[in-house]
Amino acid sequence: MEINTKMNAADVAKTQMQVDSFNKSLAVNGRTSSQQLGKDDFLKLLITQLSHQDPLSPMENTEFIAQMAQFSSLEQITNMSSGFNRLASMLTNSEAVSIVGKTVDVATENGLIKGTAEAASRGENPHVVVNGTPYEMKQIERIYAH
């Protein structure tokens, strides 16, 4: 089976208009275009491909099944990535809470500061309060046992 990969000028212009329109709709909805395709983008491409296929020469079943398998894999990988991000956030929060009351060295612009971790904030980017100043967890260089 031979696949025609060339588009005529009218199809190129129509496709470019659709892409431009889609990119503008992303900007209007607060999203920005990205160089990475997500599962929604993959599904839109698949639907567009199906809706514009030649009715006299439709997509082979094996091609369609392969693309659906790719979509399913992409969705599972996306879900796993999201789960790993949540797990990493929980671990960082847990680490921040566990050092409260311990002596720590904090890396600052002016060098290392030694002090006791007085409090910890939780969230996506937890902070630890040392000597009355909040620092990001990535700034903690050493934790001393008492």
Results as ranks from 00 to 15, higher is better:
L43D: 08
L43E: 12
L43M: 15
K44W: 03
K44S: 12
K44A: 14
K44L: 07
K44T: 07
L45Y: 08
L45C: 06
L46G: 01
L46E: 04
I47Q: 15
I47T: 11
T48K: 12
Q49V: 10
Q49A: 15
Q49Y: 11
Q49F: 11
L50R: 08
L50V: 11
S51K: 12
S51N: 15
S51T: 15
H52Q: 14
H52S: 14
Q53L: 01
Q53A: 03
Q53Y: 02
Q53G: 00
D54K: 04
D54V: 03
P55D: 04
P55E: 03
P55F: 02
L56W: 07
L56Q: 14
L56F: 09
L56M: 13
S57M: 12
S57C: 09
S57P: 01
P58R: 02
P58N: 02
M59F: 10
M59D: 09
M59K: 08
E60S: 13
E60W: 04
N61R: 10
N61S: 15
N61I: 09
N61P: 05
E63M: 10
F64H: 08
F64V: 15
F64K: 13
F64E: 06
F64S: 05
F64Q: 04
I65C: 04
I65P: 01
A66W: 03
Q67Y: 04
Q70N: 12
Q70A: 14
Q70Y: 05
Q70H: 07
F71A: 14
F71K: 06
S72D: 10
S72F: 03
S72R: 08
S72E: 10
S72V: 05
L74F: 02
E75W: 07
Q76C: 00
Q76I: 03
Q76R: 14
I77M: 05
I77F: 04
T78C: 00
N79H: 05
N79P: 00
M80S: 04
M80C: 05
M80L: 15
M80G: 02
S81I: 07
S81N: 15
S81G: 12
S81R: 12
S81L: 08
S82Y: 00
S82L: 07
S82W: 01
S82F: 04
G83C: 02
G83K: 07
G83Q: 08
G83I: 03
G83V: 00
F84Q: 10
F84D: 02
N85W: 00
R86C: 06
R86E: 14
R86M: 10
L87V: 09
A88E: 06
A88M: 05
A88F: 03
A88I: 05
A88Y: 07
A88Q: 06
S89V: 09
S89C: 12
S89Y: 02
S89L: 10
S89K: 15
M90N: 11
M90F: 11
M90S: 11
L91A: 13
T92E: 13
T92F: 02
T92Q: 13
T92I: 07
T92A: 13
N93A: 06
N93G: 05
N93D: 14
N93Q: 13
